[in-house]
């Protein structure tokens, strides 16, 4: 058997390509096991009307975005104006989940920056957050009319994400 230099070189190039692809991926993005699964059940009070309790079946029935945010979260402020703009277009229902926050701070925050949410639920102890697998606010979930999770975005929203990943699902017939 003569030494064949082509084989080690081929293996080397293959490995470089493999590691090269690995470098372009963000290790902080963790695939959600929730995609394609029903939204978990919950019973939470409303930020603006703490005496009212909202359950899952009160919300589902149309496409909606669930936006998990908190007043202490810097990146939430970053994406907020985009959400306000999206709400003005009235394309999709947007529900806020105020995650592990003080309600007084949250109310003040919405007053200052505008309130784009159809309703805001208070997840004070982060229980729904845990059921949703939230590990870094802000996170945004797209829910279909049957209550299935279609998409999850971790981190501040961008115009691109809204256009390409969130709104495409709401107009599938085109």
């Amino acid at each position: 058997m003569k030494a064949q230099p082509i084989i080690p070189i081929a293996i080397f190039i293959l490995l470089v390509a493999l590691f090269g692809i690995g470098l372009t991926k963000d290790p902080r993005l963790i695939p959600s096991p929730l995609i394609g699964k029903p939204l978990p059940e919950f019973e939470l009070s409303l930020l603006h009307h703490p005496e009212d309790i909202v359950e899952k079946h009160d919300l589902i029935g149309e496409y909606m975005l669930l936006n998990v945010w908190a007043s202490w979260c810097v990146a939430c402020a970053e994406e907020h104006s985009l959400i306000v703009d999206l709400a003005k277009q009235k394309i999709i229902k947007i529900v806020g989940i105020n995650y592990k926050d003080k309600s007084a701070d949250a109310l003040r925050w919405l007053e200052e920056k505008g309130d784009p949410y159809d309703s805001t639920l208070v997840d004070f102890d982060g229980e729904l957050g845990m059921d949703l697998g939230v590990y870094g606010v802000p996170e945004t979930f797209l829910i279909d009319p049957k209550g299935q999770v279609l998409y999850k975005h971790v981190g501040p929203l961008t115009l691109e994400v809204i256009e390409n990943n969130l709104l495409t699902f709401t107009r599938p017939e085109q």
Binding site: I30, P31, S32, P33, L34, M130, D131, L132, G133, Y135
Partner: peptide
Amino acid sequence: LTDRYGKF
């Protein structure tokens, strides 16, 4: 935990 956060 894996149902919520994945095998990660």
